[in-house]
Write a protein that binds this DNA or RNA. Structure first.
Lengths: 244, 244
DNA sequence: CGCTTTGTTGAAAAGAGTCAAAGATCGTGG
DNA sequence: CCACGATCTTTGACTCTTTTCAACAAAGCG
């Protein structure tokens, strides 16, 4: 399971056998977090948190009780992008479904970073992907609800596929429509209606704990989705490989 | 003028005299960018871009011609958070007002980072602040328009104050209401109406190229603004200083 | 001083939220 | 294995927010 992180890091930069072994040797404690509860208490913890299974989210709770989901965390993602630093984020991380979580001592991460420059670089890269993804989410906000929602599911296909949790055009997905509402800043009722309209247009089917995309290219065109931001490379042509 | 960046980096972590000197000695080319044009052509450029004066923004242009502003870039900010890496962002940076820009060779940045760990750490920190700010923007989306707008102007007060461009409760500000619309994902007309309602409530006055906040605490309470995310430290109590 | 851009306002239409109720679905315990 | 309660989905009717279109006023600029 820990291989999901390694897999992501390899996406983010080439690693040597020694580095991969060092990652595999990390001593980590695994635990389960029940849906709808926080993954950890605060950002001062001595651990960095890795999601191994299930969906989690970073969220902000406003005084009126409204929750806004800031980012979706899928298996292979680190909850904290700021690995080597005690940077305090003001928001929390909760499990949306039951999650399998690994706690990695922050000190271990620091040592890995100091010992293996390529691991450090890969972690940097992962952070930049997170930044880039948040930019995409911001750009996506304020568009028509149907395109916004379509864009989200396109992104998820790519991200889940990268860690082996999606096939070419579908994936398991068991968030509620209320969760989706908090992701998009829409009411659950409106999410429902938009999903229905997307289904009627044969663009996207969200049902039975599963997302199915009848024609990926068509949905991507509809959403104006360009996956480049998920890798930091150009998505057209051959792409330009990072290696600095 | 270059001191604005140094000032920001000092906010982000203590620097020694040697490091400050190294920063001051950086050979940079200054130029002006006219309002409404791109600050640079693409992200492959050999330079990192520093805004010395004026407001710029990172934006995404959708096919229907709608522009969404993803982040506001103020004097002292680097346009690219990803300094040491050739990470390709999919969006562009434009000047909203006439801007004074410094181009810093990427190679110079890499050398600074490799030579001075504390500069490297400060740049990391700046990137994390950017990430944190984007989280705040995302959390802010989908709230009632008046709170969203109030929150934005609270943030700007803190950021501009940090670089000496605001006094305790006001600052120069010459973006158009259409620009603001693209920031908030609202129409310019609605921005206008909300600004009027905020003014009627004596919370915020945006007029004559200037923002004035009659009662900062009251506006912050209204917006539920907590400045902690702009520094990465806790904002209540003494705050916890980062030093790892 | 006149022209262009920006700000302000109104009225009508579209989008999205709220409230409420009825169907589905799921998990659990009997 | 079924029944039950709880949660989630779907739908309708109504309200409120925000957009759009349009016109005019004000400000900025050469």
């Amino acid at each position: 399971m820990y291989n999901r992180l390694i897999r992501r890091l390899e996406h983010a930069g080439v690693l040597s056998g020694v580095e991969i072994k060092a990652l595999q040797d990390v001593n980590l404690r695994e635990r389960f977090v029940v849906a709808r509860s926080d993954v950890y208490d605060n950002d001062f913890a001595d651990n960095v948190h890795l999601i191994l299974g299930g969906f989690a989210c970073r969220y902000k709770l406003w005084a009126d009780g409204n929750r806004r989901i800031i980012s979706l965390i899928v298996p292979g993602d680190l909850c904290d992008g700021h690995v080597p630093m005690p940077f305090v984020f003001q928001n929390r991380v909760a499990a949306l479904t039951t999650c399998k979580v690994a706690d990695i001592p922050r000190q271990t991460m620091v040592e890995l970073i100091n010992t293996y420059p390529r691991i450090a670089r890969a972690l940097w890269w992962v952070t930049l992907v997170k930044l880039s993804t948040m930019q995409a989410w911001l750009a996506n906000m304020g568009r028509e609800a149907d395109k916004r929602i379509a864009h989200f599911f396109c992104e998820l296909l790519v991200r889940l596929h990268a860690v082996g949790l999606a096939d070419e055009s579908s994936y398991e997905f068991n968030l509620t429509q209320s969760d989706l509402g908090e992701i998009f800043g829409l009411s659950n009722v409106h999410v429902n209606r938009v999903l229905k309209s997307l289904k009627d247009a044969d663009l996207l089917i969200v049902a039975n704990r599963r997302v199915t995309i009848p024609d990926v290219e068509r949905l991507e065109r509809f959403a104006e989705f360009d996956p480049g931001y998920l890798s930091g490379t150009l998505s057209f042509g051959e792409g330009i490989r990072h290696e600095a």
